[in-house]
Amino acid sequence: MTPEEQSALLMRVSTGSWLIHALDAVARLGVPDVLGDEPRPVEEFADEVGADPDPLGRTLRALSALDFFTEGPRGHFALNEAARMLRADSPAPLRAFLSVGIERVLPLFSELEHTLRTGRPAAEKIYGMPYFEYLDSHPDADREFTRSLGRSAAAFFDTALDRMDLDGAEHFVDLGGGDGTLVEMALRRHPRLTATLLDRPAMLSAARERMRKADLTDRCTLVGGSFFTDVPTGGDVYCIARCLHNWDDDTARTLLRTVRDATPKGSRLLIVEDVVPDGPVTATAGYSDLVMMLIGGRERTLSEYEALLGDARFALAGAQPIGTVAAPRLHLVEAVPQE
């Protein structure tokens, strides 16, 4: 590695935390929404976003040096491909990820050493309790967490529904359904389908409002409870979307066994989850697994999912990649009950 390469590596490492704050700040101001492909003088658009032109220009100049935004003549800025992801209408919801990253993820990494020394999730040290117990006891934080996930979920739920084959299904059960994004999309696509959404009681207000606005209240039953104890019976398709990776293997195995006890013969279990390769992982997959480790979960390979399913008396029936820009490793994993 040359001295220049060493310097560039040190810069990327040392700027990580301030970069996310700087991007979040300019996104909150709405700077990406008022810029286009042609450079504009900062004095002109600073007024539009309610900012002081001097610190805004200096911030954008620094971000341009890190490949976010493009600086034309000095003090003139335009969008590039990376900055375009910060727009409110971007299909890659970087804004939501920045917000979650600052409020939830960075504090976790401050206690990574605790996890390395003890094997316990950093979240337990920070919040004094398991992560999802903290969300249960702080409903405002819980609702914001749900909204952030919902904003990033619609694109990959749309792709997942393309592959789910629900045409012959009668009742869809969404376990850990959050604000109801997936259920709403499924019911809109399949007019004869009914659904049950199970989630923690604190989560149901957002789902209830979503169903009301969509005029789907009569087709969706909302159940407050835990998918470790309260899995509804009577479904022919059960879905767990972006939940299993929240838990360690023992807990995920317990969850799947509870689901298996509730699933009738002939039903299907659909899992929407990231699947990491068996060999070396990408940088984003490695980072995602660290985040899950800090809250008490893990990302898994397909063979690891197959083993968990087998322990819970499910058989793996298939797996299809459904990745999007926001979730490139996402898969639809299908399983069927076994005796």
Score class of each variant (00 low, 15 high):
244 L>M: 06
139 P>C: 05
226 S>Q: 05
148 S>E: 04
172 F>S: 02
182 L>F: 13
239 C>P: 03
153 A>M: 04
227 F>I: 10
219 R>W: 01
205 S>C: 04
173 V>E: 07
155 A>H: 12
235 G>V: 07
249 D>N: 05
265 K>D: 13
213 K>R: 15
238 Y>R: 11
181 T>H: 00
140 D>C: 04
141 A>T: 06
145 F>D: 09
174 D>H: 09
229 T>E: 15
165 D>F: 11
140 D>T: 10
159 T>A: 14
188 R>D: 14
190 H>C: 08
215 D>M: 12
150 G>M: 05
250 D>W: 01
147 R>N: 03
218 D>H: 15
156 F>E: 13
264 P>I: 04
230 D>E: 10
199 D>R: 09
220 C>D: 12
251 T>Y: 02
263 T>P: 01
204 L>E: 02
221 T>L: 13
220 C>T: 14
165 D>H: 15
185 M>V: 03
140 D>E: 14
174 D>Y: 07
228 F>P: 08
260 R>E: 01
196 T>A: 12
173 V>W: 11
237 V>F: 08
170 E>P: 00
242 R>D: 08
180 G>A: 06
178 G>Y: 03
237 V>P: 06
167 D>G: 06
184 E>N: 10
255 L>E: 01
207 A>S: 03
139 P>M: 07
261 D>W: 02
210 R>W: 00
227 F>S: 07
199 D>Y: 00
241 A>I: 09
218 D>N: 14
177 G>S: 11
136 D>N: 12
241 A>R: 07
247 W>K: 02
228 F>H: 13
186 A>C: 10
159 T>I: 14
146 T>Y: 00
138 H>R: 10
156 F>G: 05
213 K>Q: 15
184 E>Y: 07
198 L>N: 03
243 C>W: 07
188 R>W: 08
156 F>Q: 13
165 D>T: 11
244 L>F: 01
147 R>Q: 05
204 L>R: 04
201 P>W: 01
246 N>L: 05
205 S>E: 14
165 D>I: 04
219 R>Q: 10
183 V>Q: 06
168 G>F: 02
218 D>M: 14
208 R>M: 01
183 V>F: 06
197 L>Y: 02
257 R>C: 03
257 R>T: 05
254 T>P: 00
260 R>M: 02
172 F>K: 00
200 R>C: 00
147 R>A: 05
